[in-house]
Design a protein around this nucleic acid. Structure first.
Lengths: 134, 134
DNA sequence: GGAAAGTTAACGAAAAGTGTTTAAGTTCCG
DNA sequence: CGGAACTTAAACACTTTTCGTTAACTTTCC
């Protein structure tokens, strides 16, 4: 039975980073180049991103496809669309208008520019009204 | 930029499984042996476990060590210990007695037998009073 | 008991991930 | 500007993961 995704090296760098050390300082401590510290840190972040994405997939397994928000939609119109679709299948969405927009912004930041959705967004919903954006 | 931890094959199997298919049925669909479906499913679950553990590590980066609950402690005594330790460092724990026990049970199920803690449990806490069990 | 479902072990080949180095690039700030 | 911090790319040796096979084993349920 193995540990998480991160290697000892990666966790080491992240811990030192959390303490505020520069890459050069860490490089000196663990006896390597600062370029290497950079790549180790970067691959650690990549692993964390992949861990998150993996769990996101798990959630969508429990969820069903609700609708797709087309690119170009005004962000402020998104809640109404989602509430409407959810109502059709008799599910009460867990979020109000504001927190729904915030949740979307957090989970798909690069898909939201100013007030507009700039990528198609697939919306999933669970029986409990939890939302996921794909 | 890559996807999550799971391979196409692994996601495929998990989706069919969610639909209630047996390993043999899936094996027929994707043209392989049921033994292979089993190992693919198993490694998928292992990847999911690792993803969770990775994010747990991330939380402990933000958190500081609060105390260690020794093996053999009565579960119902755990909240008092934790509240006491948190008070010493002036942090208000986010949970009440009941939800604290539930949180512990969920996060470290195999460490809780009946009313007793059967493994040492390291407790971490954030400035916001969020708890993590290592 | 017997059939279907599921698990395990051993092994091989292909693919992917990791830690390094070196060298050339940023970006930020006084 | 100049320096410190940080990023990137190519290449390498090395380890790990993955998918697959075969064959034997356990569990579950009627």
């Amino acid at each position: 039975m193995k540990d998480g995704l991160l290697t000892e090296r990666q966790m080491e760098v992240l811990r030192y980073r959390k303490q505020g050390l520069t890459q050069q300082q860490i490089a000196d401590i663990i006896s390597t180049s600062k370029a290497n510290v950079c790549t180790i840190e970067k691959s650690a972040m990549e692993n964390i991103r992949r861990a998150k994405e993996t769990l996101e997939f798990l959630y969508t397994l429990d969820a069903t496809h609700l609708c797709t928000i087309p690119s170009g939609t005004d962000l402020f119109n998104v809640p109404a669309i989602i509430f409407g679709e959810a109502e059709k299948i008799n599910i009460k969405v867990k979020y109000d208008t504001i927190s729904l927009i915030n949740r979307l912004r957090e989970s798909r930041a690069q898909a939201c520019k100013a007030r507009v959705v700039c990528e198609d967004i697939i919306v999933y919903i669970t029986d409990q009204g939890e939302l996921y954006f794909g």
